[in-house]
Amino acid sequence: MWRDIWLLYRMELVPSLRTPTWIAVGLLQPVLYLVLFGPLTEQIAATTPGYPPGGAWALFTPALVVQLALFSSSFTGFSLLADLNGGVLERLRVTPVSRIALLLGKVLTNATHTVCQALVIVLLAALMFDLRVPWLGVGMIVLVAALLAVTLASCSQALALRLKNDDAFLGLLNTVLLPLLLLSGILIPITPGLAPDWLVTASEINPLTYVVDAGRAGFRGDFDSAALLQGSLVLAALAALALWWGTRSFQRENV
Rank of each mutant, 00 (worst) to 15 (best):
N85T: 10
L103D: 08
L64C: 10
Q67C: 07
V25Q: 06
G50D: 07
L127R: 04
T109N: 15
P30Q: 06
G139E: 03
I100V: 15
G50Q: 05
V66D: 10
T109G: 15
A101T: 13
L119R: 03
G87V: 06
L28F: 12
A63W: 00
L127N: 04
F60Y: 09
L102H: 03
L131A: 04
T95I: 14
L80V: 11
G38P: 03
I121K: 07
P53K: 03
N165D: 14
Q157A: 15
Y51I: 04
A45N: 03
L59V: 06
C155M: 12
R132N: 07
S74Q: 05
V88K: 11
L64A: 11
L40F: 05
L32N: 08
L80K: 02
P53T: 02
G54Q: 00
F75C: 11
G77M: 11
A69S: 13
S72D: 12
I141S: 01
C116E: 07
L70E: 03
L68W: 02
L81S: 12
V88T: 13
V25W: 03
S156W: 01
I44K: 04
L40D: 03
L102S: 09
L80G: 04
I141E: 10
P96D: 11
A149M: 02
I44F: 08
T76I: 14
T112K: 07
P53C: 03
S154V: 04
I100E: 14
G105V: 14
C116W: 05
P62R: 05
G26W: 03
L32Q: 07
R93W: 08
P134R: 00
G77E: 09
N85C: 08
V120M: 07
L81M: 11
V25Y: 05
I23Q: 11
V31E: 01
Y33C: 09
S79K: 09
V115F: 04
V65Q: 01
T76K: 14
A118Q: 03
R93K: 13
L163A: 11
I141Y: 00
V138E: 02
L104P: 13
A158K: 05
F37T: 12
L163P: 02
R93F: 11
G86K: 09
F129K: 09
L104I: 12
G55A: 06
G50H: 01
A153D: 10
A58T: 02
L81R: 05
L32W: 04
R162M: 10
A58P: 00
D83I: 06
Q67T: 09
L136D: 06
P30H: 04
E42W: 00
R91A: 10
T76C: 14
P30C: 07
L148K: 00
